[in-house]
């Protein structure tokens, strides 16, 4: 993505200092609130208590598995659902941005479906797929799909009209127009969409696991809750955060690599 003017770049040292300061402020406020005794530990355990619990969860199994195993089981479901959403959503969005008739056919349908909460599909996922992998995948897909489509569509729609006119003058075919004009111009929007999509997909999965699963990180959270252990709940939340962060970081890398290839 384009830097906001060359004058506004930070030295690495300054960036590091600020990032650390930000983290310290975050944990500092948390720690002071929890350690001051103003709130009971069940309300907010200290960062240290959560950290200790976190480490314990990675070493000894809780509800049958260690934290890593719970995460691995969640992540497998996620990868399948998200991959499917991106593979269908991005091309669909681009095509909708180019072919008006497709836009006209799909948009109303899509508009109707995208407001339906992924977890609202939980009952149908159970009715249709039972305990199979199809259930979670359906739920993740329904969460991850809309941003893929919307951002690809918007990216394609907001391409500079003169670029399109130029390409049309040169007699570009539909396929070349989409692949060589719309797609490259939409990449920032698409990647922004993928990042949101990955976030939502991951969230939907955990949401579904909170309600129906009997394995995975969401299940760990529920079980922590019914153990009346806020430390377990927060450990689970942090683990979810770390995985989500990692997914996001990977997509950022992808974004940077694509931009570099495009000579930015």
């Amino acid at each position: 993505m384009i830097a906001l003017g060359a004058t506004d770049t930070l030295s690495f040292r300054r960036w590091l200092a600020l990032s650390l300061a930000g983290l310290m402020a975050f944990f500092g406020i948390w720690w002071i609130t929890a350690a001051s005794g103003a709130v009971p530990p069940q309300f907010l355990p200290t960062p240290l208590a959560v950290f200790e619990r976190f480490v314990a969860l990675t070493q000894s199994p809780f509800v049958g598995y260690t934290l890593q195993q719970h995460l691995a089981s969640s992540f497998g479901r996620f990868a399948l659902g998200f991959g499917l959403a991106a593979a269908i959503g991005v091309p669909l969005g681009l095509l909708m941005g180019w072919f008006r008739w497709l836009d006209a056919v799909v948009t109303p349908l899509f508009d109707a479906l995208r407001f339906i909460a992924p977890i609202a599909w939980v009952p149908f996922a159970a009715l249709w797929f039972g305990t199979g992998i199809g259930g979670p995948v359906l739920i993740i897909f329904s969460g991850a799909f809309p941003p893929c489509v919307i951002n690809a569509y918007r990216g394609a729609k907001y391409v500079e009209p003169r670029l399109i006119e130029a390409a049309q003058t040169l007699g570009a075919s539909h396929l070349r127009m989409i692949v060589e004009v719309l797609l490259p111009a939409s990449v920032p929007s698409i990647v922004a969409g993928l990042r949101i999509s990955a976030g939502l997909g991951w969230q939907s999965l955990v949401g579904a696991e909170l309600i129906v699963a009997s394995s995975g990180i969401g299940y760990l959270l529920v079980k922590g809750q019914s153990n009346i252990s806020t430390a377990i709940v927060m450990s689970g939340m942090i683990a979810i955060g770390i995985v989500g962060f990692t997914i996001d970081a990977l997509l950022r890398m992808l974004e940077r690599r694509i931009n570099r290839r495009r000579g930015r």
Binding site: L18, S19, F26, L221, V233, G241, V243, F245
Partner: peptide
């Protein structure tokens, strides 16, 4: 630089996961 680390940590936590808290 200041906000991002905390934001990135909180961001991927699903809204539903906040229910217990």
């Amino acid at each position: 630089a200041f906000v991002n680390p905390a934001f990135l940590l909180i961001r991927p936590i699903p809204p539903l996961a906040w229910i217990p808290l």
